[in-house]
Design a protein around this nucleic acid. Structure first.
Lengths: 231, 231
DNA sequence: GAAATACTTCGATTAACATCGAACCATGAA
DNA sequence: TTCATGGTTCGATGTTAATCGAAGTATTTC
């Protein structure tokens, strides 16, 4: 075994194309079977199995058996955060294969970041909540104010239920397209799911893109409007 | 050439032990020569040169000729941020070689994050400035208040000079040891350099550790005290 | 000028590892 | 039970890329 710092082991794990494809596929937040991931990465099932074994041993992904299927997902949010950060850097360093497919603008607009909303819409939502004093940042951690809790409850989020979970309610997550933070944590997840439930948005099947209906867009901008500025 | 997503190219670049060692060495913020980096990574000069060529082509490091030396440094802060994030994840996933050397606690206490102060001391400084209304966060960006500018000018920082630079004055940077933000940007750099100048702290030669003198510690806590709480 | 230092380029070697075929386990269906 | 599907393990193969010796370029010193 080659000797190197911890970071090299982690990076080399992500550095294999097949594994990188699997991980980016899992960034959609969906749990996928080994076969699906093999297909996604363009390798055979045997190869995929080997890769998944390594990823699991390193605790980057988690496995959940269900019947004769094995569903894989990212181990936790932090893995997603790091992947998101790396994607941001990779995107800026254009040379490394400029992937400016047609999906790129859509990705910038709204996408799923593991399990919450990211992209312009994600940033706008965060800004709106912050401008109106619903979320504040006190010594590096986000906090939901009383008025924020009321607002979100009226909107249809069961705040009390979220409070009982082990996960942090509000967490900042850095956006790679806009260099700004958006809302993660259990509240971020709940909000995105609520958008689905309201029919405002749908998750695009084969990518991380989130597609807003035209009505969904209107409503979203109404609820999460920006008070003081541009846009 | 193997086909893969951008992130794989980036990760595989960091994934090689020799390159990872070089990059972590550069996280000290110092500009190092090719020979020094070769030594740091434990490879010959030829090998190092090859690696540095790749890192430079990918814009992860930058080169600056000076006489017959070539000084290498990280290309920009974002590279440092991503490396810092990856180190955080790697550290949590203990299995990947638990490096809990004697330097680990010291690293948590105070270290250089590319060019500014990180660790507990970095977080405390940020908290102190924020609590006292000297730095505020408005829609994701940090802003220095008038009182903050005055305070820092009294402390000995030439704020006006910093304002003329192209770099952002204040930037948040996420800390891997404490999961909190500390102060980056040109002000962050200036503050750290001022600490050196005052004799409060010294950069440990062979690592990213920052060593505070006992007097430096006292003074630091006096200037950047926390108003409302623990510690 | 010559000699030394700092680094790069070239070429050959070698070691690591991704890949897939084949055989093997587990679960569910008939 | 038998068959089919989903997944893992094993072994052999092939490709990639890290490595270093040797030779080449640039810059400073004497």
């Amino acid at each position: 075994m080659k000797e190197g710092p911890d970071i090299a082991l982690l990076a080399s794990l992500i550095g294999d194309p097949a594994r990188a494809n699997m991980l980016t596929a899992l960034m959609s937040g969906k749990a996928l079977t080994a076969s699906e991931l093999a297909n996604e990465a363009g390798v055979t099932l045997q190869t995929a199995s080997s890769h998944l074994g390594k990823l699991e041993k390193a605790e980057l992904v988690r496995q959940r058996k269900q019947g004769r299927h094995r569903y894989f997902s990212l181990a936790d949010c932090e893995v997603g955060d790091v992947l998101e950060a790396m994607m941001g850097l990779a995107a800026k360093r254009g040379h490394m294969r400029t992937r400016t497919g047609p999906n790129d603008p859509a990705l910038r607009k709204a996408r799923v970041c593991y399990n919450h909303l990211a992209g312009e819409y994600g940033v706008q939502m965060m800004d709106s909540l912050r401008e109106r004093g619903m979320i504040s940042e006190s010594d590096g951690a986000l906090e939901l104010s009383a008025s924020g809790a009321k607002f979100l409850a009226d909107f249809g989020i069961d705040i009390d239920l979220l409070g009982t979970q082990r996960r942090a309610l509000c967490k900042p997550c850095l956006d790679w397209s806009a260099r700004r933070t958006h809302l993660a944590g259990s509240l971020g997840t709940a909000l995105l799911n609520h958008f689905y439930g309201l029919g405002w948005a749908k998750r695009h099947e084969a990518s991380r893109i989130i597609v807003f209906s035209s009505e969904g867009e209107r409503e979203f901008h109404k609820v999460f409007k920006l008070v003081d500025n541009k846009n």
